[in-house]
Design a protein around this nucleic acid. Sequence first.
RNA 1: GUGGGUGUAGCUCAGCAGGUAGAGCGCCGCGUUGUGGUCGCGGAUGUCGCGGGUUCAAGUCCCGUCACUCACCCCA
Length: 472
Amino acid sequence: MITPRTPSGTFELLPPEQIAFQRMLDAIRAGYERFGFLPVETPVFERSEVLLTKTGGETERQVYFVQSTGALEKARDAAGEGDAEGEEAAYPELALRFDLTVPLARYVAEHEHQLTFPFRRYQMQRVYRGERPQRGRFREFYQCDVDIIGKDELSVRHDAECPAIIHAIFTDLAIGAFTIQVNNRKLLRGFYEDLGIVDGEQQAAVLREVDKLDKRGEEYLRTTLTGEDFGLAEDVVEQILSFVQVRSTGHDDALARLAAVEAASRGSQALAEGVAELREVLTLVRALGVPEQDYRLNFSIARGLDYYTGTVYETVLDDHPEIGSICSGGRYDNLAGQYTRSRLPGVGISIGLSRLFWQLREAGILQASTARSTVQVLVPQVDAALLDDQLALASHLRHGGINTEAVLDGGKLGKQLRYADRAGIRFVAILGPQEVGEGTVTIKDLRRQDQFTVPRAEVVAALRVELAQPEV
RNA sequence: GUGGGUGUAGCUCAGCAGGUAGAGCGCCGCGUUGUGGUCGCGGAUGUCGCGGGUUCAAGUCCCGUCACUCACCCCA
């Protein structure tokens, strides 16, 4: 017999948890729509050339190729004939998407003339990465993206919308206090230019290390940056360290820190732009109603992806910093340069829901409040002879908008109640000979261990009232 | 791609000096007739990952292999 199991790096849930997961998806979708975004879905696989435009070694290492058996045979034949027609010819034609941003770029470029700009879309689908799986990291996972794409231009005002969306959604999700951390790549670039770190590669390398500050600590950073690989002077490293540890403590403090950075600058143009952008973003974030304790400047945030050019975001849970960023994103100047001549700047964020869900579960902060079952009422079979009446009651409840399961196979009532309890169904509507005789239905609340009998005509109304009651 | 760890009942694991397999949880049944969760009693379940070796004897030691897992790179 074949051992049934999922491939490593994937996960599936039992219904009670799937419900919780679905509720989170619903909340995110609702949040995105409330901010005026349109839904989009794209195929799980794309033409390989679309995904591998930036033939970076990393992407190639992580992408899953897709190939039909026919295509595979054809490729084999070609290989057999010694047809070595360059590296690219060896790739299968199709590959699984590893994020939603690249497909978005292709989508926007492809449908440019049918879309209206600024194009505001959200997309919540699974993506695939051929990584070695790790704790809370998967090879298949959900991303929930929102992006605003402009044609030619997109004012920095849109950058302020992202924190507002994050705030609304994570408030709804009710998974605890959170802080939206904001930074700006131009500011970072300017700062490092001022320090004489001009080379793009070196800047990127420094940013990557700085990103580890929270995880590895200050000493690690000091040793690394002054060490062989970087060879930075000690006073430069100290400047980096003190800069990078900046965390604003409120709105006015954030503005003051921006002013301080600007005053200390040796005149970098990029730094000045970054400061101006952040200033505008922060001001509008406040105007959009985000409480000032929920956002702050954090100069250590860089984001690994090199396509970010301006504002960058990272959101953390205040009580669980170990979880890391639960939502991140930023501004990019040219989304679809590979696919169109049009200049399409954008800004967006992404929630890695699979990882978030997993970590919330591990940390024990998944709300227990969500129901374990989608069934609201079970109609047990007290007496097989009353099947018609039982089914009529179930039908009546369903017409009343109540999710109803009717027991078809019967058995002892006790067993049926146990079934309901285990399945996480809270209410039972009992219709036995007694109830049929007097035209009533008995409603039992398994959580509160309480039951009462109502006239048949009032069942739906009574249950609606009960369903609105808290469990304890 | 680089390094560690682990593989025993559905799950979590024990089995510490090699001697014929255990616990807790879960599951099933019973505690009578229309009432679950608690409680009591009873019950089922394992090619001890796979292959080879050492030994009178291997879950236990050795080798190989596969799988899973954690961390690093990178990232959600």
